[in-house]
Design a protein around this nucleic acid. Structure first.
Lengths: 224, 224
DNA sequence: AATTTCATGTAATTCGTTACATGATTCC
DNA sequence: GGAATCATGTAACGAATTACATGAAATT
């Protein structure tokens, strides 16, 4: 059943929720718009799309040039394919979105989830943010402990590296605190449609001014 | 010839330079002491050690219990193996250390290198730090460009994520600036042994107070 | 006319993990 | 004597990359 890392699948579903796209465009958005994700290669993306289709979560539609393409009998015609989310796919994505298992606190899972926060309920967002925070706090605990145990045996550069690493984590914790804070304050007394409905329903807490998650590159648009 | 990611190989060589160790201990140091590295599993580490031995960079030595182990003729005896760097291995490591190809600016490669800065010459350190900095600046350029292109189409959370990501990178650039600064100031007029000699020869520029590189976990000492 | 960017795919390979299998030693 | 931790390995699998292969459309 190939439960891929899940992240690519998740992101593809999430992006296609906005609008149908073909693979090429999808890949670009994976690199750029979502700030976070590493650039998946075509070798990864296209096969993944095929399995999503096989699962009934997407359907393939003819890309541009819809007229003459079908007419020309030649089999060699390479088709442009636009992928569209099916209702089942939409449902599946919503399941994934609200399903906050322990994986959801890991770096990339968290970032992927966060990128689609606009489509979730505040309750879920809080769970994810708080889960992420405890995950990081655990990490800090271990780093501190290990540092305490080994400090004297390490040279200055190694020490410096560890310190910078810890500070990065501490910084993210502060960021999370602000986010949690503003989620809490955000729209607390707000009733109305609590469901994460179709297109941007304006649902969004008040966000602070800050940034992200230090994923490697996203760059290299040109998949050399 | 299996050029693994290179990082594990590099780190193993570097750690064994300090002292012979067996695989188990090596793995722990990979997780903790070097702050940065993800926890390599035994399934990765042991085979890697074997190929390093095959390359003549390490030799295996009987671990503890050297007396009775050899005496007992039983083949079933599982040996404890201590790995020691050979002169060829040492040479190879030094080659890797000073060989600053474009890979060296990537996240993990950079972190790995930095962790062994204590064993390099200032000249090399400068090259690596500056290379890393331009790498990050390129990245920032692309992020800024992409943000400018797509800003209005993105929701608040995605935007927030991108902002945090950019700030993380900017922060690392500032860190690098400080490091470069202090390398430059460090021991500029210093003559003497310029070679990165055997054990800690006290060679170290003046470092600022800061930290590192946001690698995921290192935790999970207990390889579940 | 040539180059870049759009567009889709496959095969081989690399890097790494998990789960399994085994056993010794140390601490309580 | 039982648990934790030390210690070493292998086989099956997973996720993703690279290099290859192909070709259409848009731009210069």
């Amino acid at each position: 059943m190939s439960r891929r890392s899940g992240i690519l699948e998740f992101a593809v579903l999430g992006l296609l929720r906005e609008a149908p796209m073909h693979g090429y465009e999808l890949r670009k958005r994976l690199n750029t718009s979502l700030g976070i994700f590493r650039a998946f290669s075509y070798g990864t993306l296209y096969p993944c799309l095929k399995t999503l289709v096989a699962n009934g979560w997407l359907i393939e539609e003819p890309g541009s040039a819809p007229e003459e393409a079908v007419a020309s009998s030649l089999a060699g015609r390479r088709a442009k394919i636009v992928y569209r989310l099916t209702p089942e796919g939409k449902e599946h994505f919503e399941e994934l979105l609200s399903h906050t298992g322990p994986d959801a606190w890991e770096d990339e899972h968290f970032a992927a989830r966060f990128a689609f926060f606009g489509q979730t309920e505040r309750e879920v967002r809080m769970r994810v943010l708080e889960g992420r925070r405890s995950r990081l706090e655990e990490r800090l605990e271990k780093m501190r402990a290990s540092l305490a145990r080994t400090r004297e045996r390490l040279d200055d550069y190694t020490l410096e590296l560890q310190r910078h690493g810890m500070e990065s984590v501490e910084r993210e914790v502060r960021w999370l605190n602000e986010l949690i804070e503003s989620e809490r304050a955000g729209r607390d007394q707000r009733p109305g449609t609590d469901a994460p409905h179709d297109n941007d329903s304006g649902e969004t807490g008040g966000l602070p001014r800050h940034g992200g998650s230090t994923r490697p590159d996203p760059s290299d648009d040109t998949a050399k």
